[in-house]
Amino acid sequence: MATAPVGTLYRGGQGMWSWVAQRITGIAVFFFLYVHVLDTALVRVSPEAYDIVIATYKTPIVNLLEVGLVGAVLYHALNGLRVIAVDFWSRGPRYQRQMLWAVVGVWVVVMLPGTYYMMRHTVEALFGATP
Protein backbone atom coordinates (compact mmCIF):
# COMPACT_ATOMS: atom_id res chain seq x y z
CA MET A 1 0.00 0.00 0.00
CA ALA A 2 1.00 3.63 -0.33
CA THR A 3 2.47 4.20 3.11
CA ALA A 4 3.90 1.57 5.40
CA PRO A 5 2.02 1.31 8.69
CA VAL A 6 3.91 2.21 11.83
CA GLY A 7 4.81 -0.94 13.74
CA THR A 8 3.01 -4.00 12.49
CA LEU A 9 -0.52 -5.12 11.69
CA TYR A 10 0.37 -8.70 12.56
CA ARG A 11 -0.96 -9.45 16.00
CA GLY A 12 0.23 -13.01 16.52
CA GLY A 13 -1.73 -15.72 18.26
CA GLN A 14 -3.77 -18.56 16.80
CA GLY A 15 -5.84 -16.17 14.68
CA MET A 16 -2.83 -14.90 12.75
CA TRP A 17 -0.96 -18.17 12.45
CA SER A 18 -4.00 -20.12 11.22
CA TRP A 19 -4.36 -17.41 8.54
CA VAL A 20 -0.65 -17.62 7.62
CA ALA A 21 -0.94 -21.41 7.33
CA GLN A 22 -4.06 -21.03 5.17
CA ARG A 23 -2.08 -18.85 2.72
CA ILE A 24 0.98 -21.12 2.64
CA THR A 25 -1.02 -24.33 2.14
CA GLY A 26 -3.15 -22.57 -0.48
CA ILE A 27 -0.12 -21.49 -2.53
CA ALA A 28 1.48 -24.94 -2.26
CA VAL A 29 -1.68 -26.77 -3.35
CA PHE A 30 -2.26 -24.32 -6.21
CA PHE A 31 1.23 -24.86 -7.66
CA PHE A 32 0.79 -28.62 -7.33
CA LEU A 33 -2.49 -28.30 -9.24
CA TYR A 34 -0.68 -26.66 -12.18
CA VAL A 35 1.75 -29.57 -12.33
CA HIS A 36 -1.00 -32.17 -11.87
CA VAL A 37 -3.03 -30.83 -14.83
CA LEU A 38 0.14 -30.76 -16.96
CA ASP A 39 1.10 -34.36 -16.13
CA THR A 40 -2.44 -35.61 -16.72
CA ALA A 41 -2.51 -33.76 -20.07
CA LEU A 42 0.14 -36.24 -21.27
CA VAL A 43 -2.69 -38.76 -21.84
CA ARG A 44 -3.37 -36.70 -24.99
CA VAL A 45 0.23 -37.18 -26.15
CA SER A 46 0.58 -40.94 -25.84
CA PRO A 47 0.05 -43.73 -23.29
CA GLU A 48 3.84 -44.20 -23.17
CA ALA A 49 4.57 -40.54 -22.40
CA TYR A 50 1.99 -40.57 -19.59
CA ASP A 51 3.21 -43.85 -18.09
CA ILE A 52 6.88 -42.74 -18.19
CA VAL A 53 6.15 -39.56 -16.24
CA ILE A 54 3.82 -41.27 -13.75
CA ALA A 55 6.51 -43.89 -13.15
CA THR A 56 8.79 -41.15 -11.78
CA TYR A 57 6.15 -40.56 -9.07
CA LYS A 58 6.32 -44.15 -7.80
CA THR A 59 9.16 -43.56 -5.35
CA PRO A 60 9.33 -43.28 -1.52
CA ILE A 61 10.27 -39.57 -1.71
CA VAL A 62 7.24 -38.69 -3.85
CA ASN A 63 5.10 -40.86 -1.55
CA LEU A 64 6.20 -38.65 1.37
CA LEU A 65 5.42 -35.53 -0.69
CA GLU A 66 1.95 -36.98 -1.36
CA VAL A 67 1.32 -37.29 2.36
CA GLY A 68 2.46 -33.67 2.74
CA LEU A 69 0.10 -32.60 -0.04
CA VAL A 70 -2.85 -34.41 1.55
CA GLY A 71 -1.97 -32.81 4.90
CA ALA A 72 -1.87 -29.35 3.30
CA VAL A 73 -5.18 -29.86 1.45
CA LEU A 74 -6.84 -31.24 4.59
CA TYR A 75 -5.74 -28.31 6.75
CA HIS A 76 -6.79 -25.81 4.08
CA ALA A 77 -10.21 -27.48 3.79
CA LEU A 78 -10.88 -27.75 7.54
CA ASN A 79 -9.63 -24.25 8.35
CA GLY A 80 -11.59 -22.94 5.35
CA LEU A 81 -14.77 -24.36 6.89
CA ARG A 82 -13.78 -22.62 10.15
CA VAL A 83 -13.37 -19.31 8.30
CA ILE A 84 -16.85 -19.78 6.78
CA ALA A 85 -18.25 -20.45 10.27
CA VAL A 86 -16.57 -17.28 11.59
CA ASP A 87 -18.04 -15.27 8.68
CA PHE A 88 -21.59 -16.64 8.60
CA TRP A 89 -22.35 -18.15 12.02
CA SER A 90 -23.41 -15.55 14.56
CA ARG A 91 -21.33 -17.20 17.29
CA GLY A 92 -18.45 -18.00 14.93
CA PRO A 93 -16.09 -15.21 16.04
CA ARG A 94 -16.61 -16.11 19.71
CA TYR A 95 -15.68 -19.76 19.12
CA GLN A 96 -12.94 -19.21 16.52
CA ARG A 97 -10.22 -20.48 18.87
CA GLN A 98 -12.12 -23.60 19.92
CA MET A 99 -12.87 -24.25 16.25
CA LEU A 100 -9.15 -24.06 15.47
CA TRP A 101 -8.46 -26.75 18.06
CA ALA A 102 -11.24 -28.81 16.45
CA VAL A 103 -9.51 -28.32 13.07
CA VAL A 104 -6.20 -29.50 14.53
CA GLY A 105 -7.88 -32.43 16.27
CA VAL A 106 -9.73 -33.66 13.17
CA TRP A 107 -6.57 -33.17 11.11
CA VAL A 108 -4.55 -35.43 13.45
CA VAL A 109 -7.32 -38.06 13.67
CA VAL A 110 -7.59 -38.24 9.85
CA MET A 111 -3.87 -37.99 9.09
CA LEU A 112 -2.78 -40.84 11.40
CA PRO A 113 -4.65 -43.64 9.58
CA GLY A 114 -4.37 -41.70 6.29
CA THR A 115 -0.58 -41.67 6.49
CA TYR A 116 -0.54 -45.37 7.39
CA TYR A 117 -2.64 -46.37 4.38
CA MET A 118 -0.83 -44.02 2.00
CA MET A 119 2.64 -45.16 3.11
CA ARG A 120 1.86 -48.88 3.38
CA HIS A 121 3.11 -49.75 -0.08
CA THR A 122 6.36 -47.82 0.42
CA VAL A 123 7.00 -49.41 3.83
CA GLU A 124 6.38 -52.89 2.39
CA ALA A 125 8.70 -52.18 -0.54
CA LEU A 126 11.48 -50.87 1.72
CA PHE A 127 11.25 -53.14 4.73
CA GLY A 128 9.34 -56.20 3.57
CA ALA A 129 5.76 -57.20 4.33
CA THR A 130 3.98 -55.47 7.22
CA PRO A 131 2.72 -57.78 9.98
Binding site: T40, V43, P47, Y50, D51, I54, Y57, K58, V62, N63, E66, V70, G114, Y117, M118, H121
Partner: peptide, 15 residues
Protein backbone atom coordinates in the same frame (compact mmCIF):
# COMPACT_ATOMS: atom_id res chain seq x y z
CA UNK B 1 -4.74 -42.38 -2.64
CA UNK B 2 -6.43 -44.91 -0.39
CA UNK B 3 -9.38 -46.78 -1.94
CA UNK B 4 -7.76 -47.26 -5.36
CA UNK B 5 -4.26 -47.94 -4.05
CA UNK B 6 -2.48 -44.67 -4.80
CA UNK B 7 -0.09 -43.70 -7.58
CA UNK B 8 1.28 -47.27 -7.77
CA UNK B 9 -1.90 -48.24 -9.63
CA UNK B 10 -1.97 -45.26 -11.96
CA UNK B 11 -1.24 -45.67 -15.66
CA UNK B 12 -2.89 -44.82 -18.97
CA UNK B 13 -5.32 -47.76 -18.69
CA UNK B 14 -6.45 -46.57 -15.25
CA UNK B 15 -7.23 -43.09 -16.61
Amino acid sequence: NILDGGVQRINFAFV
